[in-house]
């Protein structure tokens, strides 16, 4: 199972969100879906109402930014570390 780590900013809205959440899934979309089952409502913070990655959110697999921001089809392997981070923007 992939291990998922999060920006600490998400813990404001999901106080129970721990780091290194282990989630099963072969794609980023499946990982996000699994996260939403564990933490209801979390997916809506990461992806928009059409399932695309929000403009100011980044997801990395290892050190690589995912390529498919629209459908989250990037492959995730069992030993991958996935990072859900906040893009730098705004003021």
């Amino acid at each position: 199972m992939a291990r998922v780590q999060f920006t600490r900013h998400l813990s404001r809205y999901f106080p129970d969100l721990e780091q290194n959440v282990e989630i099963e899934g072969n794609t980023v979309a499946q990982i996000v879906s699994g996260l939403d089952s564990r933490f209801p409502g979390l997916a809506a913070y990461i992806v928009d109402d059409q399932g695309a990655l929000r403009q100011h959110v980044n997801i990395f697999i290892g050190n690589e930014l995912i390529r498919d921001r629209k459908r989250l089809g990037d492959e995730v392997r069992a030993d991958d570390s996935v990072y859900v981070l906040q893009a730098l923007s705004g003021g």
Binding site: H9, L10, Y13, A44, Y45, R54, Q86, A87, G90
Partner: peptide, 8 residues
Amino acid sequence: DHGHWGQK
């Protein structure tokens, strides 16, 4: 209108 997390 969250800058990062969308409309809530």
